[in-house]
């Protein structure tokens, strides 16, 4: 069983997202270890990008802070290597296609493999363009996570058929960021996936409260939360670790 599959092996998964290097890599390192202790089943690490077009303002600001602090892809690989010495939680990178392409997709996946990254999520790399990185993902055993959106409709089956690891269900239109209500029929999206593949489905975009998380967990195999956590990091800065830990504990309980 791959590490990504393990994340979904013990009931509903809670998947937190943080931006690597926000406010600095030492804190990110502590956050990953602490969130794993508090029950995070898979951790998404954002590689900051200058122009994150799929992100709302909260994660945009996190990317700006991380880049202003001198965070680079190589330094993030170094941090992952340090984390892997003490922590075996499944980890996925979330970033845009340009940082991967420009780094060299082959070298990027090789470094993922060597440092211990299990999967990669690239929101601006749709099904039609996945050959840009897929051969390298296959070569180095990195899962390329597919996203489905409320507008995907007839595309869901096509995407699900070739999906790896888990399917990332985008709960709402627009960019990342908390929403009071999620109006999309997430259950129907997931039903279409499961029709063609027995693969875990995790819901993300807009989720922040334990009640929402519990409801989404009822419809899916896991819940992804990003902006709500990044907001806590923004609020408490270098002192954010205990606050994030408490939030993760609450959310993990809510989805279980």
């Amino acid at each position: 069983m791959s590490r990504v599959q393990q994340a979904f092996a013990n009931g509903k998964a809670f998947i937190p997202f943080i931006t690597a290097g926000d406010p600095k890599l030492e804190i990110t390192e502590q956050l990953v270890i602490k969130m794993a202790e508090e029950g995070a089943d898979l951790i998404e690490l954002g590689i900051p990008f200058s122009d994150p077009v799929a992100e709302g303002v909260v994660i945009q600001r996190a990317d700006e802070r991380a880049l202003a602090g001198g965070t680079t892809t190589d330094k993030i690989f170094g941090m992952v290597q340090r984390i892997r010495k003490v922590c075996s939680v499944p980890m996925a990178f979330m970033t845009y296609v340009n940082p991967v392409f420009t780094y060299g997709a082959g070298l990027f996946m090789k470094n993922c493999r060597e440092t211990g990254i299990d999967a990669i999520i690239v929101p601006d790399l749709p099904f039609e363009e996945k050959e840009e990185v897929m051969p390298y993902c296959s070569e180095f055993g990195i899962d390329l996570i597919s996203l489905i959106a409320p507008t995907s409709r007839d595309r869901i089956r096509m995407i699900a058929r070739e999906a790896q690891g888990f399917v990332y269900c985008v709960s709402s239109m627009g960019v990342t960021g908390v929403r009071k209500e999620i109006t999309t029929d997430v259950g129907e999206m997931i039903r279409l996936v499961k029709e063609v593949r027995d693969i875990p489905c995790a819901v993300g975009f807009g989720i922040f409260s334990p009640e929402q998380a519990a409801r989404m967990a009822g419809l899916s195999d896991g819940v992804i939360v990003g902006s709500a956590i990044v907001k806590i990091v923004e609020q408490y800065g270098e002192g954010c670790v205990p606050h994030v830990a408490e939030y993760v504990r609450t959310m993990k309980k809510a989805v279980s």
């Binding site: 929101p123 749709p126 507008t151 995907s152 595309r155």
Partner: peptide, 22 residues
């Protein structure tokens, strides 16, 4: 290679949410 290519350039590198729209 995907649609809309000019040599190696072009393509459709956008979020899934926009794919049906394009």
């Amino acid at each position: 290679m995907s649609k809309g290519r000019f040599g190696i350039h072009g393509g459709q590198y956008i979020p899934e949410t926009l794919m049906n729209a394009v």
